[in-house]
Design a protein around this nucleic acid. Structure first.
Lengths: 194, 194
DNA sequence: CGTCTATTTGAATGTACTCAAAAGCGGTGG
DNA sequence: CCACCGCTTTTGAGTACATTCAAATAGACG
């Protein structure tokens, strides 16, 4: 099992003893997901936190017109889960799908709770992860309210340069909140202007 | 000092011994804020979590065109703070302003950290608060991406019926992400349609 | 190679914004 | 108590940003 990435991720925020990190790792399950395969679908109860080792996932919802809206991409080193469903243990709205063949580590919610009880440092760890996630969503909400599509696209390019190369344009459109057609027109416009 | 509301808020999520709740209360400071007075401004470092006892606050940012975008209203029983600034200890972008004469309880970030260290249950409490906040922002982001202004307004009315009566229309417009003029036109349209 | 999906381009449309002006409303001071 | 001031809300005309629908082109994968 590939563990160096996740251990680096954890130790960015908390220091672990050898036995603590062994215990943590013992709770993880490895899984391979093929491109276009789903880890989670609408109306599923989300019971796993997902950590990406290689590949890339996306979390998205469908609106009532059938349009996809991407909440989050998860390239290597990122966590993803349907927090709403996980916390309420209710069926959620999130789809999690592999954009490429992807290797993930899964942490079951019950194991996460047990981990936090037995190694209280992890309470701190998950709080920090969630805080960062909160800040990101808040930021994005403000940008969606305050910036035109062009600026949102430029911000995305600046913020996630590695994702730009990796992702089909359609997915970026669904993230910044425009139709694929309009993103295409914006890009053409921006090239012409140079 | 008015403490029943905040104790009810805390005990929704964790159970406290008498000495624990005494310790918690000893860390709080009471404050009165007059209508239109600010508790926090752009470029301030946010050092306090704010709990509203009576009245109402709003948290907002300014975009580069000078438009206000409201992140959150805080009626009685709600917490508000600039999480970004608080976690990074960097100057933030958030304004917190009283919409009415308001009574709040303040918890300093150092006291919050001390509280979490000495009464670890509070680590859990604040994690839950943040999780709920995360879910709300996520929800709102999806709604902004997926729903037209009309539906966002209707959702707001359904979700916060008490706020509708309390707030000037202009503030609701800044929350759902339209100009006050357009909200006015939508409402006129909706009345005509009945 | 053929099929399926993603991207590009164009024309018509719609949703929401800008600017301007008028009307309504609440608070304050004379 | 009323008159006035400032702010919010309404209304209208013109405009801009982004969508829809359709069709053509390009790319990716088996």
């Amino acid at each position: 099992m590939q563990t160096s990435l996740i251990l680096a991720n954890v130790s960015k925020h908390i220091d672990l003893q050898a036995d603590e990190s062994d215990f943590f790792l013992s709770l993880l399950k490895e899984k391979r997901v093929k491109r276009k395969q789903h880890l989670l679908r609408e109306n599923d109860v989300c019971l796993q936190s997902v950590f990406v080792n290689t590949g890339c996932l996306r979390g998205y919802t469908l609106d009532k017109n059938g349009y996809e809206h991407i909440l989050q991409f998860a390239p290597p080193g990122w966590w993803i889960a349907d927090m709403y469903s996980m916390l309420t243990r209710q069926p959620g709205e999130l789809f999690i799908e592999a954009l490429e063949d992807t290797e993930v580590l899964l942490l079951h919610i019950d194991d996460r709770d047990r981990l936090m009880r037995e190694v209280p440092k992890f309470e701190r760890f998950f709080r920090i992860i969630i805080e960062n996630s909160l800040i990101t969503f808040r930021q994005r909400l403000m940008e969606n309210l305050g910036l035109p599509a062009r600026d949102r696209y430029l911000l995305f390019c600046k913020r996630y340069p590695t994702l730009i190369e990796r992702l089909p344009q359609k997915q970026i459109a669904a993230y910044i909140g425009v139709t694929p057609e309009f993103l295409s027109k914006m890009r053409a416009e921006m090239l012409r202007a140079r």
